[in-house]
Amino acid sequence: MKAIWNNAVIAESDETKIVENNHYFPMASVKQEYLEESETHTRCPWKGKASYFNIKVKDKVNEDAAWYYPQASHAAKPIENYVAFWNGVEITG
Rank of each mutant, 00 (worst) to 15 (best):
A3L: 07
W67R: 01
K2M: 03
V83F: 10
K56D: 09
K58R: 14
L35F: 10
N62I: 03
F85C: 09
E37P: 06
W67E: 01
E33H: 10
F25R: 01
A3W: 05
M1G: 02
N6M: 07
K49C: 05
Q71P: 01
W5N: 04
L35C: 12
C44F: 09
T40H: 13
P45N: 13
A65H: 01
I4V: 14
H23I: 04
K58N: 15
A84V: 00
Y68S: 00
N7D: 15
G48K: 07
K77P: 06
W46P: 04
E80W: 01
I4T: 11
G88N: 12
Y52A: 06
H41F: 07
K47N: 12
E90R: 02
T16I: 13
T16R: 02
V83C: 02
E20P: 08
I55L: 15
I10G: 05
A50L: 00
D64A: 13
N81A: 04
H41Y: 04
E15M: 09
S13M: 13
L35S: 12
D59E: 15
S13L: 09
Y34Q: 10
K47C: 11
A75C: 06
E63M: 10
T42M: 07
E37Y: 08
F85G: 06
F85R: 03
T92Q: 14
E12C: 02
L35I: 09
G88C: 08
Y69T: 13
F85T: 04
A84H: 08
E63V: 13
Y34L: 08
C44D: 14
I18S: 00
P26N: 03
T92M: 02
Q71V: 14
N54P: 12
